Simulated scan of single mutants.
Amino acid sequence: MSELRPISRDLPRPPSIEPGPAPMLQWIDIELLVVDESYQRELRADNMKAIRRIAERFDWSKFSTVHVAPIEGGRFAIIDGQHRTHAAAACGFSQVPCQVTPMDRTRQAAAFAAINGLVTRVTAWQIYKAALTARETWAIELDEIASAAGCKIGRNATPAADKQAGQIYSITYLRKAIATHGAERTQKTLTVLREAEGTGDTVELWSFAYFKPLFEAIASRPRCLRNSDGLKASLAAMDVWALESEAENMVAQRRRAGQPFVSKIEILESLIGDALDKAMPERMALPAPKAA
């Protein structure tokens, strides 16, 4: 059970502590919960989409307590959790678990700002690790595709000096690639990149700036993937660094000419694709021989 980490007791104690009133935990009727629009966010179209997503996947094990403050008339102002509460109401529940903390409106607004502005961002790696442990379909698929191609999904922020070829840290992008190109083509593309001389053993080419243009240029050319040996040979002969320099020059030229911005990654993808098309030209089908 080495993955179970205890709470550290060695953290420095703050010089002064003013925690305010201690909160209480209780189930509260949703009809008693209100939203104070003087500090709360409005429910726009994207908020409604978020509420629908929560409702469609509603699970009490993923429902954290709603933070509220008691106000006049026996009601409670929601500090944090209006999306969750709306979703619970949409599912037909009449109560939600709440953390009740006495505070005036000024302190309510400050609490809202602190909770929503000082949240530690959860990284894609942390989400992937949690999803894999929870045996979620997308995480299992990601792991299986990478493993079958001889690659490995990164699970934390690894220093550049410790990264290895074949390690994929662009988790969000790879999920989009699977959705766009399909699992089979994604696996074939990763396999070619891993097995090709030059790309398979060069750590730098597995960073997002190179991995994405290489992957997209290959995955978008299924005819090249059908000749994997020829594709690997073409990649081995390709000078990606020279193409990168060319892409940088093109970005600078477009900027000087006042042309619309196109990123270096997009241009590099196009240059890699052109190089593959030149090395592996599409053969024209010959007409069928006429009957004698």
Rank of each mutant, 00 (worst) to 15 (best):
G20L: 05
Y39H: 06
L43C: 10
E56L: 12
I28A: 04
M24C: 10
W27R: 15
T65G: 07
A22F: 07
W27S: 15
A69C: 04
Q40P: 04
W27N: 15
K62N: 14
V34A: 01
K49P: 01
P12Q: 10
I54L: 06
L32D: 11
V68I: 06
D46Y: 06
Q26G: 09
I28W: 01
E56R: 12
I54V: 10
L43M: 11
R13P: 04
I54F: 01
A50F: 02
D29F: 11
I17W: 14
P21R: 02
V66F: 00
E56V: 08
L32E: 09
S61I: 09
D36C: 06
D29I: 07
E31D: 15
P12T: 12
D59S: 02
K62I: 14
D59I: 03
F63L: 13
Q26E: 15
P19C: 12
Y39M: 02
R53W: 07
E56G: 10
M24S: 14
S16G: 12
R52Q: 14
P14V: 09
T65S: 10
S16H: 12
W60H: 08
W60P: 05
V34F: 00
E42Q: 12
L32C: 11
P21G: 05
Q26N: 08
W27K: 15
V68R: 00
V66I: 10
H67Q: 08
L25T: 15
N47Q: 15
Q40H: 10
S64M: 11
D59F: 02
S16I: 14
Q26P: 01
P12E: 12
L32T: 10
D36K: 01
Q40I: 08
K49A: 13
P23R: 04
T65I: 13
E37W: 06
L33N: 00
R13T: 15
I54P: 00
A55K: 02
A55G: 05
I51L: 06
G20H: 03
D59M: 02
R44S: 14
P12M: 11
A55V: 03
S64C: 09
L43N: 09
S64W: 03
I28Q: 05
A45Q: 12
F58K: 03
P14A: 11
L25G: 15
S38G: 06
W60Y: 11
L33M: 07
A50S: 11
